[in-house]
């Protein structure tokens, strides 16, 4: 209980800091802490394989990519691109409405729960067997999807010649 409160509040505060931070690199660092917090929540829920995967794929892979992107595009004058107050108000109203809706639904879902929680979450072995039997199709689709992403990203990020001034691109 205390563990959940600590980890959940840390995760929530880091997520809030991602939104409120004006320096994009600091946002990236707060996002890192949010993702680590979510991974700790998975360990707390007993889903150890998913927690370790979150750490290795999200924190060790995706976040490194995001921070590289931030550093390669963060010129000094663009670090602090300001949003106008009107956009903030619209955003806060929308996000607040969505949060109220989702929280109400969650509270109603949580009442009258009669089934006991899963005693032991399926481990790595069962996940592996599941991926190769029941969920084989999503697994294969994901493999092809990753191949497409690899080729696409490599093509998009290839070194191109800069177009000359005044020449229309064809």
């Amino acid at each position: 209980m205390i563990l959940f409160t600590a980890i959940a509040s840390a995760t929530g505060l880091s997520a809030l800091a991602v939104v409120l931070s004006r320096n994009i690199v600091r946002s990236a660092v707060w996002l890192l802490f949010t993702l680590v917090g979510v991974s700790l929540l998975y360990f707390l829920l007993g889903a150890e394989f998913v927690g370790a995967t979150q750490l290795i794929v999200y924190v060790g892979g995706t976040m490194v990519l995001v921070v590289f992107g931030v550093m390669l595009t963060a010129q000094q004058q663009f670090l602090k691109i300001r949003t106008r107050p009107q956009e903030w108000i619209v955003g806060i109203v929308l996000a607040g409405a969505l949060f109220t809706l989702l929280a109400t639904v969650s509270l109603r879902l949580g009442e009258g729960r009669t089934t006991a929680p899963t005693e032991s979450m399926p481990g790595t072995g069962q996940l592996g067997v599941g991926f190769l039997t029941t969920y084989l199709l999503p697994f294969e689709i994901i493999s092809v999807h990753l191949l497409v992403v690899l080729i696409g990203a490599a093509y998009l990020a290839r070194a191109k010649r800069r177009p000359r001034e005044g020449v229309a691109s064809d």
Binding site: E48, A52, M71
Partner: peptide, 25 residues
């Protein structure tokens, strides 16, 4: 004693790259 200990060690040691990137930046 984690049931995914080998994977966990790999995952956590892969996070060390962050200290390097942030220090460099």
């Amino acid at each position: 004693n984690l049931n995914v200990a080998a994977f966990f060690i790999l995952a956590v040691l892969s996070s060390e790259v962050f200290g390097v990137i942030l220090a460099g930046y």
